[in-house]
Structure formats: structure tokens, C-alpha cells
Computed example of a mutant assay.
Amino acid sequence: MEVLKSAGVTQFDRCYLAFSFGPFIGFWAAYDGIQKLGALAIPGGSMSSEERLNSMIQNHATVLLCTPSYALHLAEVAEKVGIDMKNSSIQKIISAGEPGGSIPSVRQQIENLFGAKLYDHVGMTEMGAYGYSCQKRNGIHVNEKEFIVEIINPDTLEHVKPGEKGELVLTNLGRYGYPMIRYRTGDVVIYQKEPCVCGNPHLFLPGGIVGRADDMVVIRGMNIYPTSIEAIIREFPEIKEFRIVYYTEREMDQVKVLIEGPENAVEPLARLLRVRIGLRIEVERVENNHLTRFEMKAKRVIDQRESKVRGNVNGISI
């Protein structure tokens, strides 16, 4: 409910759930929240992307719920089949499942494609939905009515100082049958002591989820988060899809990016990655529709490093 209310969803909205219902609790929680709010829930399960687009149009949906990756894919399909989503009834998009909704370049690209405002929210099966973006849409508020929040240095376990990155630790207060105490989420965030300018007094995390502690890799002495690379790639709207590949060359770990896009995007992207990341990252163009699209959480990282292969076989360290 807090997620929906913060995005300005009311009982007069028609909310389109662009995913297949299964055992994942997050989908059912979204459906239940829409029902309790009194809005209309339109399920889009067992449909192709084109069928879902047509269903949104036919049912005059005003709110779309999906992952950021799937929103981009829906826009891509809409362009192919001649559906104008920018002038459709969709006014708001509520994303989850990936950090993309809080990455400015990703958010801007989705909003431009749909002509709608994008709101992010974050959660996990163990905790439930613990954070949501406000009308300013520049970060995430943690729902402190339901959660006790700590942000720690993952190495020392000490609380970080304002402005520093740390791992989010939560204790949930609203789950009677499944309490979690000081649960290390693995989400990397930036701690900010001051409240958001929107007036919400709950803890504000600028930029939302910066990355995952288990996603970070060290390449030639540099800490690399996939979200940092994606933020730069999404500044190029002509790039439809991408992959990040870690590999080993001459016993040294490297990183390259595969893109679906025009040839003239390769050099500018490589140059911007070098400036922003501080590392030379090879950019390679592949044919259109070569890379898989995702309905659920996107898996855009391919790890082919020899050190990883040598270090672990079938879950057993060697």
C-alpha cells in the first residue's frame, strides 16, 4: 500500500500487472495491495508482450507494474508493431526487481518511451517491500513504520558515516510469522542523515540501491558494479540491449560490453566508460535481436574469468 500511495495511485486507477503469476510472493503482494486500495487490477499473465500491450490499450490501463528491463522491452516491441505507448493511457510505471528504476539514465529513457512517470520500489522475499520512491523520484525511502534500518561497513560491521556507501541491514516489524532480525540484505546504499526534500521523514537513500555486495568484482584493481556500467549505457537510447562480460586474457581479468545498437555508438560509449569508470572497457557490437530479452529480473552479466572457474567447481572450492 505504501508503494502505491507514494506513487500517487488511487482507487480510480487501472493497474496492469505485466507478469505471470507464480509462487513468487512479490507479485501476489502487488495484486493484494491494488485490491485493498480499491483500484482495478488487470493481470497480464500467460500473454506475449504484444498481447500485453494490446490489453493495456484496450483496458485503458493507467499504471504499469513490471521490471525496468521489461518496460524497455515492451517499448521495443511496441515500436516494432506500431503501438504508440507514448500517447497511451499509461500515466505511471512502478518498477521493481532491479536497481534500474532509481538509475537516472534508465528512468529517463523509460519515461521518454512511455510518456509516463517511473516510480521505483525495492524489497525481497525475506523482508517484503521495504522501500519506495517519492514524488521527487531521486532515491528510495525506507518504510520505518515496518523496518528498523542500519547501514554498515560489510568488512568491519561498523555503522557507516553520512555520505558513505554501506550494506543495508534490516529488522522487520510487520511479519508475525517470519521475523528477521538484523538481516544483511546485500544491498549497497549510500547513507544520508538529512531527510528528503519531499518532506517524508523516513530514512532517505539517495540513488536507491547502488548495487549488490555480491555483484561487485575487482578488475585491474578497480571495484566494478554492473549498475554503474548500465547507468552509462542507458544514456544512449539507440542501444536496445547489452551484456557485461568478465573474462581473462593473458592471466589478467578484463571486462567488455556487448551492445545491440548502431556502429557509431561503439566509440562514444567506450570513451565515456573509460572516463566515468576509470578503466578501459572494450565495446563490441552484435546483431540486433542477438541478446535475450527478460520479463523477470535481467541477467546481463556473464562471468568467464579463469580465476572463477579454477576456484569453484560444482560449488566446491578447489
Rank of each mutant, 00 (worst) to 15 (best):
V210C: 02
V210G: 00
G211Y: 00
G211A: 14
R212S: 02
R212P: 00
R212N: 02
R212M: 04
R212H: 06
A213R: 12
D214S: 11
D214G: 07
D214N: 13
D215E: 14
M216R: 12
V217F: 09
V217H: 11
I219E: 00
I219Q: 01
I219P: 00
I219M: 02
R220N: 06
R220A: 05
G221A: 06
M222Y: 11
M222G: 01
N223E: 11
I224L: 13
Y225E: 06
P226W: 08
P226D: 05
T227P: 00
S228L: 10
I229T: 02
E230N: 04
E230Q: 12
A231C: 07
A231W: 04
A231H: 13
I232H: 07
I233H: 03
I233R: 02
R234Y: 11
R234F: 09
R234M: 14
E235F: 05
E235T: 12
F236M: 06
F236G: 05
P237L: 11
I239Q: 07
I239E: 07
I239T: 10
K240V: 13
K240S: 14
K240E: 12
F242V: 03
F242E: 04
R243L: 13
R243Q: 14
I244L: 15
I244M: 13
Y246Q: 02
Y246E: 02
Y247F: 15
T248H: 08
T248Y: 05
T248P: 03
E249C: 09
E249T: 07
E249Q: 14
E249A: 12
E249K: 15
R250W: 05
E251N: 15
E251G: 04
E251Y: 13
Q254L: 07
Q254V: 06
Q254Y: 10
V255M: 06
V255W: 02
K256D: 07
K256F: 04
V257H: 00
V257E: 02
L258V: 04
L258F: 13
G261H: 01
P262I: 08
P262C: 09
E263M: 12
E263A: 14
N264G: 06
N264F: 14
N264A: 08
N264K: 13
V266F: 02
V266Q: 07
P268Y: 06
L269Q: 03
A270G: 10
